[in-house]
Amino acid sequence: MNPSSLHERLEHGIAALGLALPAGAADRLLTYQALLQRWNGTYNLTAVRDPAEMVTRHLLDSLAILPYVQGESLADLGTGPGLPGIVLAIAAPGRHILLVDSNGKKVRFLREAIRTLGLEGVRAVQSRVEEVEGSFDCITARAFASLADMLGWGGHLLAPHGVWLAMKGKPADEELPGIPAGFELRARHALHVPGLEAERHLLVLGRA
């Protein structure tokens, strides 16, 4: 798929999501996608190889949670190659964002992406989630573990009035009894990602 077709696919998806992004954001998102594709050949950062699928499964999938992101600081736990953290940093700049992953190759890519895209206030750390310190208004986690494990490892990072956005494929009903004491499910949203037939759900959690 040529660059203009990718741009059209992305723009249509952004419109379908009802989002208004800053000027130039779509171009920067595609710069990120191209960088990911280039590094993927050597570092195997994602199983998604097709550029058009990357637009749908990575960019639009990440953008679908943008209306629920809040606060001045965000930690993206188990970010992998920056999903959704880097996408959110491009789409809604001005927030302090910490990208956390334990994989050194992925963190090297993240730092190159931050540098290439000139993302201010965004930094990447190679660490296990439970060893990270800080307090964040918003935490994102894209299906990297069960709710019990996510909150068990990273719950200490959530600010008192913060929101935890857990991105899931299935509704994750069977995980709800495992939510640790001190946390509660606030809301659940079925997400409709343009061009994606698979289920996507967002669970919004907070301190009880």
Rank of each mutant, 00 (worst) to 15 (best):
V122A: 14
N103I: 08
A113W: 10
L176Q: 04
E130F: 00
N103Q: 12
S102D: 04
G154M: 10
G104S: 11
A141Y: 02
M167P: 04
S146R: 12
G121P: 08
W164H: 02
G121H: 05
V122F: 04
C138W: 10
G178H: 02
C138Q: 13
C138F: 10
W164F: 13
L99M: 12
E112D: 08
R128S: 05
L158E: 04
R142G: 08
H96I: 02
L147K: 01
R108S: 12
A145H: 10
A172M: 00
E174P: 10
K168V: 06
V125A: 00
G178D: 15
L151S: 07
D101H: 02
D149F: 05
A141G: 06
L98A: 08
L119I: 11
G134M: 09
M167C: 13
I114Q: 01
G121F: 03
D137I: 12
E112H: 14
G134P: 08
V125Y: 05
K106Q: 01
R142Y: 13
L151I: 08
G162E: 10
C138P: 06
S102T: 10
V122Y: 04
R123A: 11
I114H: 01
L158S: 01
D101L: 08
G162R: 09
A166N: 12
G118N: 13
V122R: 12
L157E: 03
D101A: 05
G154T: 04
R128H: 11
M150Q: 11
P171V: 07
S102Q: 05
L119T: 14
G178V: 02
E120N: 12
I114F: 05
L119M: 14
P177L: 06
V132Y: 08
L119H: 13
L119V: 08
M150F: 06
G152F: 07
A113P: 08
V100I: 14
G169K: 04
H96L: 12
S127C: 03
L117N: 09
I139V: 15
K105M: 07
W153T: 03
R115W: 03
R95T: 15
A166V: 09
G154V: 14
L157Q: 09
W164E: 09
G178E: 07
V107G: 00
K170A: 15
E112L: 10
L110Q: 12
K105I: 05
E175S: 05
H161M: 06
R115T: 10
A159W: 07
H156F: 06
L147V: 07
F144G: 08
A124Q: 11
G152K: 03
V163F: 06
E133Q: 15
E120F: 00
I97W: 14
F144D: 04
P160M: 08
I179V: 13
S146D: 02
R142C: 13
D149E: 15
L157C: 13
C138R: 10
A113T: 02
T140Y: 15
D101K: 09
V122G: 08
K170Q: 15
L110D: 07
M150D: 06
L157V: 06
W153C: 07
A172H: 03
V122N: 02
K105R: 15
D149W: 03
L176R: 06
M150W: 02
V163L: 14
D149A: 14
A113M: 13
L176P: 04
S146I: 11
L165C: 04
I97A: 02
S146W: 03
V125F: 00
V132I: 13
